[in-house]
Design a protein around this nucleic acid. Structure first.
Lengths: 341, 341
DNA sequence: GTCGTCCTTGTAAACGATTACAAGAACGAT
DNA sequence: ATCGTTCTTGTAATCGTTTACAAGGACGAC
């Protein structure tokens, strides 16, 4: 015996399919009708088929959140915020992961045309014209949690990296650190580029020259550790053979928390104390920042708020597809912990 | 102009809808037919509607992975493994999160009847008869990544917690630690219960008495920290007024990595050195274990392999729904890092 | 030339829901 | 008693696919 359908319920209740559908959707019906249908539904254990329903009504009541890397704790913060907003609005949230390649992101956005969900929040690492084009042409509303050109004409919620960088640099400066190094992620990514520029500007504004800057191969812990190694090796070498503390920076800023934690491991391996010898600042202020040891001072780029606002933007656009695109930028704060003096 | 359908393509190509569908699905057709249809598809930018398709064929080519807490790094390991297997088999993976309540899990499993996906991998924290019943009656195949009674008759892949505990205890013993404390998660959860029993058995087998055991309110970092506080306070009090090191355990085993890291923070706050004063062992061997400082010795309960096997089991059952349920248990190993001597 | 076979293509009926429209019932007002 | 209004219910069309079935064409064998 296969799954009951609305027709089966109708038969069991001795009413028409239309009536069944009506009581199921809370449309007006007599008490007796409601009673009979609900009894039949109970009896048969009927559950409506969402595919059929969404085919007819043109909505799935599902929303998709696409992130590049589930291993990056900044996304769990964002995910929680998005989940909260969309579930309050009666949507299911499904999460998919795209990986670092822009082509996969384009494929995902194009794929939305298949009708998987009513909307998409995407946080792309890399952005190119193809991706922007696919977003503009997407069948369903898309909001970008990240930075795309205003000319793209899409809803976005982004962080203010430059200001975040300024917070970091000035905090270090206030603590008397001036030999500041920077470990970025890949500079061909959107956040990587933004942070590179933000860091350069912040340093210039404070009349500082970076003691070194290295680019990790991605935004992961392993890459951070490797970048830390490279950073410290280079510095030791550049000092004409001097080794160890003398040549080391007295502070390093990392483009995200995973990188920062990787760097702290490398510092520890070289017996450099954090924050006594080297202060470390991360970015994202993810759960990892408080879990790391020492707890990591981190620039809070507002990932929770970005998630929340992105979700709200998406819901608003689903409601009214003609509204003019908004570009929200959320302001950073600094969460000071023990990795800085 | 709205989205093109197969009818639109058929009109544009001057052929029938059946022919369009056939070439789209790779069924035999003349070269010319294929040519014309593909041209029309290109021209109109046609993308098939997966809702309609799956309504007709009864499959969605989506699989769901449901986890309790996206913030727990053990799930990212598992998620990666599942993703790899299912995408290789041509399925999309969607991830949803259930929260800690069993009723939400039941709702999710029941909800699968709506046709969201062709199968489900679920890793429930808490299991009751309702949940088992819902799994057995589920319209789509379900495999449980976790422990449910054999009588439930469902495919499961689970860890061997008792053996894992034995690895942990014996490692500590080999290092000369005998004052072993245990921090568990909620004992009304499946992993909590398994680890409680595993720990007790392992201690007994080695003729040891636990110096203390506390139960955290959940499996999170914050709960670990709080449990660490409670543990150390209790011990200090129980020692008749003596404070600090003398009363402390010389080793702590935690039921997962998040708890372990929380405990390490509390130890640090009390100037207890890891591993010199207190050794710490976590479980799950998640990414957090290598990211923490000092890197955490952790019992690898095989989350990646569990994910992989669970996904394979699911695919196999989708293939053949009559096969007899399998119960796979994957064996633990110990990843020794610097939190133990 | 006729017939049978095989191959390609088209027509129309599903899949399981929602909903426009029509029909019937109930009821009060005239 | 008749009519009009309102309210409830049923019939049937529809969403965008796939696919069973039938029809037509090509071709070789007799």
């Amino acid at each position: 015996m296969s799954r009951p359908t609305v027709a089966g319920v109708a038969r069991a209740a001795g009413v028409s399919v239309a009536s069944v559908s009506r009581v199921l959707n809370g449309l007006p019906a007599t008490e007796e009708m409601v009673e009979r249908v609900q009894r039949a539904v109970q009896e048969l254990g009927y559950v409506p088929d969402s595919r059929a329903r969404s085919l007819k009504v043109g909505r799935t009541f599902q929303l998709t959140l696409a992130v590049a890397d589930v291993g990056n704790p900044v996304y769990v913060t964002m995910m929680r915020a998005v989940e909260e907003v969309v579930s309050a609005a009666g949507y299911r949230l499904v999460v998919t992961t795209t990986g670092p390649d822009v082509v996969d992101e384009v494929a995902l956005v194009r794929g939305m045309a298949r009708g998987y969900a009513d909307g998409l929040v995407i946080s792309p690492l890399r952005v190119d014209d193809d991706l922007i084009k696919s977003i503009r042409e997407c069948e369903v509303p898309v909001v970008v949690a990240g930075n795309v050109p205003a000319s793209a004409g899409v809803d976005t919620v982004r962080a203010n990296s430059p200001k975040g960088m300024r917070l970091a640099v000035e905090h270090l400066l206030a603590k008397g650190r001036r030999r500041i190094a920077f470990v970025n992620g890949p500079v061909d990514t959107v956040p990587g580029a933004a942070r590179a520029k933000g860091f350069a500007d912040a340093m210039k504004a404070n009349k500082l020259k970076p003691v070194a800057a290295v680019e990790a191969v991605d935004f992961t812990f392993a890459a951070g550790r490797e970048a830390g190694r490279e950073l410290l090796d280079t510095l030791a070498g550049g000092n004409g053979g001097a080794t160890g503390k003398s040549a080391a920076p007295d502070a390093v800023i990392a483009a995200n928390d995973l990188l920062a934690v990787g760097i702290m491991h490398e510092l520890a391996a070289r017996d450099l104390a954090v924050p006594a010898d080297v202060a470390v600042i991360g970015m994202d202020d993810s759960e990892l920042a408080e879990q790391s040891f020492p707890p990591l001072t981190s620039v809070n780029l507002g990932s929770a708020e970005r998630g929340r606002r992105a979700a709200e933007l998406l819901l608003a656009r689903i409601e009214d597809s003609t509204r003019t695109p908004r570009r929200i930028v959320v302001q950073p704060t600094l969460s000071v912990r023990r990795s800085t003096p």
